Simulated assay, not measured.
Amino acid sequence: MTRGVRGATTIENNEAKEIIEHTRTLVLEMAEKNHIQPEDVSHAFISVTKGVDAAFPAKALREIDGWKYVPVMCMQEIDVPGSLPKCIRIMMVVNTDAQQKEIEHTFQREAVKLRPDLLERKDS
């Protein structure tokens, strides 16, 4: 079965090194929390908000051991007034036996504001 695993983080500065670093940290935590191996990943979409354009966040995945061949696509997020600035979001589609409620979505830095409901303990 395939499942979507969400993740998001923010950057402080529109700098290539920072974009790559925070994307890498996010992907590694998403993989660790959900026991994901690169071979489990069908593909990943990465979106960025306006003003995050100093680097392709996908580069971070290609630099992680074993992740070189995971298909990744970057795109611009819809520019909604009042939305969280300097945000990088990932939707990773993985092959897993986990139930939907067992997926642990990952939100780092200022992105914890996006979906506090997904960060709460799952009781059902």
Results as ranks from 00 to 15, higher is better:
Arg6Ile: 10
Arg6Pro: 03
Arg6Gly: 04
Gly7Ser: 05
Ala8Tyr: 12
Asn13Trp: 12
Asn14Met: 08
Asn14Ala: 06
Glu15Tyr: 10
Glu15Gly: 08
Lys17Arg: 14
Lys17Ile: 12
Glu18Ala: 04
Ile19Thr: 03
Ile20Gln: 15
Thr25Trp: 03
Thr25Gln: 11
Thr25Val: 13
Leu28Phe: 01
Met30Asp: 04
Ala31Asp: 05
Lys33Gln: 12
His35Lys: 08
Ile36Trp: 03
Ile36Asn: 09
Ile36Thr: 11
Gln37Ile: 07
Pro38Glu: 08
Ser42Glu: 14
Ser42Lys: 15
Ala44Phe: 02
Phe45Cys: 11
Ile46His: 03
Ile46Gln: 05
Ser47Asn: 10
Thr49Gly: 12
Gly51Cys: 06
Gly51Thr: 04
Asp53Thr: 05
Ala54Phe: 05
Ala54Cys: 09
Ala54His: 12
Ala54Glu: 12
Ala54Tyr: 09
Phe56Asn: 00
Ala58Met: 09
Ala60Lys: 02
Ala60Ile: 08
Ala60Ser: 02
Leu61Thr: 04
Arg62Asp: 10
Glu63Phe: 07
Asp65Tyr: 02
Val70Cys: 11
Val70Met: 10
Pro71Met: 07
Val72Leu: 02
Val72Tyr: 00
Cys74Ser: 15
Met75Thr: 12
Glu77Trp: 02
Glu77Gly: 06
Asp79Cys: 01
Asp79Gln: 11
Gly82Trp: 04
Ser83Val: 01
Ser83Pro: 04
Ser83Asp: 09
Lys86Tyr: 12
Cys87Trp: 04
Cys87Glu: 14
Arg89Pro: 10
Ile90Pro: 03
Met92Ile: 03
Val94Ser: 00
Val94Asn: 05
Asn95Pro: 00
Asn95Lys: 13
Asp97Cys: 15
Ala98Met: 14
Gln99His: 09
Gln99Tyr: 07
Gln100Arg: 06
Glu102Gln: 08
Ile103Trp: 01
Glu104Leu: 13
Thr106Asp: 11
Arg109Phe: 06
Arg109Gln: 12
Glu110Leu: 08
Glu110Gln: 06
Val112Gly: 13
Lys113Asn: 08
Lys113Tyr: 07
Leu114Tyr: 10
Pro116Arg: 13
Asp117Ala: 13
Asp123Gly: 08
